[in-house]
Write a protein that binds this DNA or RNA. Structure first.
Lengths: 220, 220
DNA sequence: AAAAATTTTTAGATTAACTTAAAAATATGT
DNA sequence: ACATATTTTTAAGTTAATCTAAAAATTTTT
């Protein structure tokens, strides 16, 4: 059975939505994620159901079958491995790689993925700190919290971002808040929910509510 | 203007055919190269003509416009650069890379190609000895001849293959006739057009007519 | 130069992926 | 619980890319 580029993207969207909301993906949620119409989704969802890649009952939303989930996680695996390649080997910055990886993830070759993984040193996380699933679709789980959830005095290394937009990533670059940087909460301002933090035990910095709510820090 | 995966493949086919035959690509030649029907080609050729990527007059064959040629050579550039990547960095063998590169060549990102080129050390030839065009579509030209065209006593390094099939490439691997190997013609047998050659000034080898007609050797 | 063979184009259909607009089903508010 | 709002599906149609079969144009043969 072969599966189109488009079908793959639908499966990935369904995976993301279900993971995010912890429940079946609605037609509207999918159309929104895919920048298409609800009618197109209904159409596609029938086809994916015929191929037993999803469970679908009209008006009840969509979940992935084992097969469908396997394809979705494999796409994510490829996407994130390619992102590592682009950053580590070709020296792209972390805000430039998403769109290219969006194309590269559709390249079909089992051996290519295996060799790329090996070449990159079997990385477990991509340049944004997102976990790279293994060949069976298992993600490494890490104890993490948003910086905004830490209490005064708590600290940890920055391990990921919640917001993946170029704007945020470039902001972090300018602040020299790369992955691995240690952040310690010195003071919390209830007024605007901002924080004064100590970065790498060296310099102090004021971070806005929005920034704190989008930075993942490793726990304990 | 955007151009589909399929349209790109047509342009590449037209480029190859015109280059091979030194005249406009016929509908049949294209349908043959693309494994499709003449009717499909006529259809597509109209669309490419509307986009001013080719010159087309019915019953008279097809040539590429400047724009079309630019796209075709850029595809070849990407294809061959990716082949170098697969062989040099991921350690694929030269008979395994064509199909993967066939997919990778469609990835759209100017910066990616530039960075890949740099990462690979600006190679001028791919793993099969085919020239890699530069960003302007110019190919490095090399003085070469088929081994079968050499006279007794002449010699040169192997620089390319005419036949790109897996069977031939694997045969060369088994014979340890990789690119760079020096071959000297010791004797020519008129009977079956085979040759006795000296390889790397070390060992003698008998090569069949077919092999000699598919190996490129650097001249003078 | 006419007949035969080949090549190319047109005509008519199909499929995947998409759209808009209307109808149907489900969910929500009072 | 019923009217209203929202979500989802169906219906009908479009476009790119393909196909088969038949017609038309070109080339080759004699």
């Amino acid at each position: 059975m072969d599966i189109s580029h488009t079908e793959e993207n639908y499966l990935k969207a369904i995976f993301k939505i279900s993971e995010r909301n912890g429940k079946p993906a609605s037609t509207n949620a999918i159309s929104n994620e895919m920048n298409t119409t609800a009618a197109s989704v209904t159409d596609m969802v029938k086809r994916l159901s015929d191929k037993t890649l999803i469970h679908y009952e009209r008006y009840r939303g969509v979940t992935l079958t084992g097969q469908g989930e396997q394809i979705a996680t494999h796409l994510i695996r490829k996407h994130r491995l390619w992102e590592v390649f682009l950053v580590d080997k070709l020296h792209f910055s972390w805000d430039e790689v998403h769109e290219i990886a969006e194309q590269l993830e559709h390249i079909k070759s089992k051996r290519l993925v295996e060799r790329l993984d090996e070449y990159l040193g079997f990385p477990k996380f991509d340049p944004h700190g997102d976990p790279i699933p293994d060949a069976d679709g298992n993600f490494t789980i890490r104890k993490q919290a948003l910086l905004s959830e830490l209490k005064t005095g708590e600290q940890g290394p920055v391990v990921g971002v919640h917001d993946h937009t170029t704007a945020f990533l470039q902001y972090l670059d300018r602040m020299e808040l790369v992955l691995g940087t240690t952040v310690k909460v010195l003071e919390y301002f209830e007024y605007d929910e901002s924080m004064r933090v100590l970065i790498n035990n060296e310099r102090e910095q004021l971070l806005s509510k929005k920034v704190c709510q989008n930075l993942f820090v490793q726990k304990q």
